[in-house]
């Protein structure tokens, strides 16, 4: 009973410790703006910012921009997932594909994909496609690498068991290997999702006519500080929400797998 009590107390104190820096940061922000240490044109009060955020959530124009961002994010992420898993599994199942793929990935993976963006705009124009292409380029590699590494690490005896039961090699690759690699694939996909979220916003900031990122740039140009904070908070909260949703989905998909940390 007392042991349980101690665990409880530790959990509570750890939660409090975790909340402390966040509360502290918000508190300092509030104090700075409330006591006029910084002019509102440089740092608006958190209350103003959150109130503006709530107002904008009901604003059709803001929602339209957010919708454009979401559309690019999900289409790009979806393509990256399909390409990444497909190529990764093929490379794991075929040595020639792997030998061809590995050096290309070693060269391309560390390249800052954002640098491709001007070229993508030249090729695909200012609208959705150039941003989607950039999201694909950026989210593809973590998914592809995680799939390949996960698939290569699958215990061959799992495959042998299926092969002996009568499954063909190709069938094994797409049922047994793919499923057994799922924990790794989902980890890669989660990283890819957050990257997609970030990069679509950045692309919209660099060259775009709409989207959340563009709202931030527009606000900066007009020195509307409050409206600069709102898109950043929106995209960060979107990232947090997607991350949480993805974790929930992973937990459901990974029933039966040994739990990961």
């Amino acid at each position: 009973m007392s042991a349980l009590h101690a665990v409880w107390r530790r959990n509570i104190s750890e939660t409090l410790a975790g909340a402390l820096p966040i509360v502290l940061a918000l508190g300092i922000w509030y104090v700075i703006s409330a006591w006029n240490f910084a002019p509102a044109s440089l740092l608006p009060s958190p209350v103003t910012v959150f109130r503006r955020f709530l107002v904008l959530l009901g604003d059709p124009q803001f929602l339209q921009n957010a919708g454009a961002t979401l559309y690019r994010l999900f289409v790009g992420f979806g393509i990256a997932v399909m390409l990444g898993i497909g190529i990764g599994i093929l490379a794991a199942g075929n040595r020639t594909v792997a030998a061809l793929m590995q050096p290309v990935i070693r060269v391309l993976a560390p390249v800052p994909k954002i640098a491709l963006y001007p070229a993508l705009v030249l090729m695909f124009g200012f609208d959705h496609s150039s941003k989607i292409a950039l999201v694909v380029a950026d989210a593809l590699f973590p998914i592809l690498l995680a799939t390949y590494q996960g698939a290569v690490a699958v215990d061959p005896k799992l495959v042998w068991s299926a092969r002996a039961a009568g499954a063909s090699q190709t069938r094994c690759l797409f049922t047994i290997v793919l499923t057994a690699a799922l924990p790794s694939i989902l980890t890669g996909a989660r990283i890819g999702l957050i990257i997609a979220c970030i990069v679509v916003f950045l692309a919209e900031m660099i060259l775009s006519t709409d989207g959340l990122g563009q709202l931030l740039v527009r606000a900066a140009r007009n020195f509307q500080t409050v409206d600069m904070f709102v898109p950043i908070i929106a995209i960060s909260m979107l990232g947090l929400l997607l991350n949480a949703a993805f974790n929930m989905l992973s937990k459901r998909l990974l029933v039966g797998f040994p739990s990961q940390n």
Binding site: S13, E14, T15, A17, G18, A19, L20, P21, I22, A25, L42, I194, C197, I198, V199, F201, L202, M205, G213, L216, V217, A220, T225, M228, F229, I232, I235, S236, L238, G239, L240, L242, N243
Partner: peptide, 24 residues
């Protein structure tokens, strides 16, 4: 326990997007 939640919140923030605010 102190840092983890803070970093979790900061993780999905696009850091380069802070550029305009930081320049301000």
């Amino acid at each position: 326990a102190f840092f983890n939640p803070l970093f979790m919140i900061i993780y999905p923030v696009p850091k380069a997007a802070l550029m305009p605010i930081i320049m301000l």
